[in-house]
């Protein structure tokens, strides 16, 4: 009850702060469109903590999960553009409006409602197979897939999800067919491979390291431009001659109409925040490499990435029941 009262008081004080104060003059809310403990949350919390030190104002994390991130993304896209609502989003931010279009739904938000602030991290994903799958290299796997004529299966974190798109990029580039078994998250997707219910899945380095070291999963190929530090023996599609690249990235966004001076404060603060030693330590602990890009470069990166992902979504098209 006391807490509730404190909250009300806090809200009243915040509302009382006048608008012409220098930004930021009151606490900033960072919306994370996923539940606590996920990649966006684990990246968002140390970022918020580092931003707090620079901006001298509390930056609070507000988890708004739902519909694969759509609820939180839409909340920020439609928030008051005053710099007091920012967001730590994942690469899926570009995919959701595309998927809405496929089903002739009015998109919950559009990409031009969001302004990129900075890219924080980007992690290439890796293809892992169950140890009983005979193929050890990509050419062997492709040969096996052709020989089995669409009988191989893979699990995903959800249809059009972060771990579904890279797989479809691969299948499309090599003109292969496989059975897609969609689940409800990265964890369940890996569980299905571990139990031998499907042949393969895609995982971020942090999610698969332990299983690979224990010999329960075998990495075959990665989606990065270069080999991943933790997996020096796993080749990439690029070096095998396929023009496929895919990263799960986390970036900071603000509502589109956020005034330029406020954006500048946010960008400067983020540049300083990613140099913070505590931030660096936290990110290293979760095996998430910091990949900082300031707004102009991030905007370019985002545009290219969004275009690539939109194409994949259109290639997948509406998923029909496979017979």
């Amino acid at each position: 009850m006391k807490n509730g009262l404190a909250c009300v008081l806090l809200a009243l004080t915040a509302a009382a702060a006048s608008a012409q104060d220098v930004y930021p003059s009151r606490p900033i809310s960072m919306i994370v469109p996923f539940p606590p403990g996920g990649v966006a949350d684990i990246t968002g919390r140390p970022t918020a903590a580092a931003l707090e030190k620079v901006l001298k104002q509390p930056v609070t994390i507000n988890n708004r999960p739902g519909a694969g991130g759509k609820v939180g993304n839409a909340a920020v896209a439609n928030a008051k553009p005053d710099g007091y609502t920012i967001m730590m989003a994942l690469s899926s931010v570009s995919v959701l409006p595309e998927a809405d279009k496929l089903f002739d739904l009015k998109p919950a938000y559009t990409l031009d409602q969001l302004a990129p602030v900075a890219l924080i991290s980007a992690d290439p994903v890796i293809l892992v197979v169950h140890p009983s799958v005979p193929a050890k290299t990509l050419p062997e796997l492709v040969a096996l897939a052709r020989q089995k004529q669409g009988q191989l299966s893979f699990s995903t974190s959800g249809v059009y999800g972060a771990l579904h798109l890279p797989m479809e990029m691969f299948l499309h580039a090599l003109n292969l067919k496989m059975r897609a078994v969609h689940s409800t998250g990265g964890g369940p997707a890996i569980t299905m491979v571990l139990g031998g219910h499907v042949d393969m899945t895609v995982g971020g380095p942090a999610a698969i390291t332990a299983q690979v070291n224990a010999g329960k999963l075998r990495p075959v190929v990665g989606w990065g431009a270069r080999r991943h530090e933790a997996f020096p023996n796993v080749p990439t599609f690029k070096e095998l001659g396929y023009d496929i690249e895919y990263y799960i990235w986390a970036g900071m966004f603000a509502p589109k109409a956020t005034p330029e001076p406020v954006m500048r404060v946010l960008r400067d603060a983020t540049r300083k925040a990613v140099e913070d030693p505590d931030f660096r330590t936290s990110m290293a602990r979760v095996n998430s490499p910091v990949q900082y890009l300031d707004a102009p470069e991030f905007a370019k990166y985002w545009a290219a990435d969004a275009k690539r992902l939109a194409e994949v979504v259109r290639v997948i098209g509406r998923v029909e029941e496979q017979k």
């Binding site: 403990g37 684990i42 299983q211 070291n213 224990a214």
Partner: peptide, 28 residues
């Protein structure tokens, strides 16, 4: 025993371990 989250609660607990740089998994 496997480092696999089977539901939302265990997923959050796993995140709590991973934040400390411990990789949960069969070798834990």
């Amino acid at each position: 025993a496997l480092g696999v989250p089977t539901g939302p609660i265990t997923a959050v607990m796993l995140a709590a371990i991973m934040v400390h740089g411990i990789a949960p998994g069969p070798m834990l």
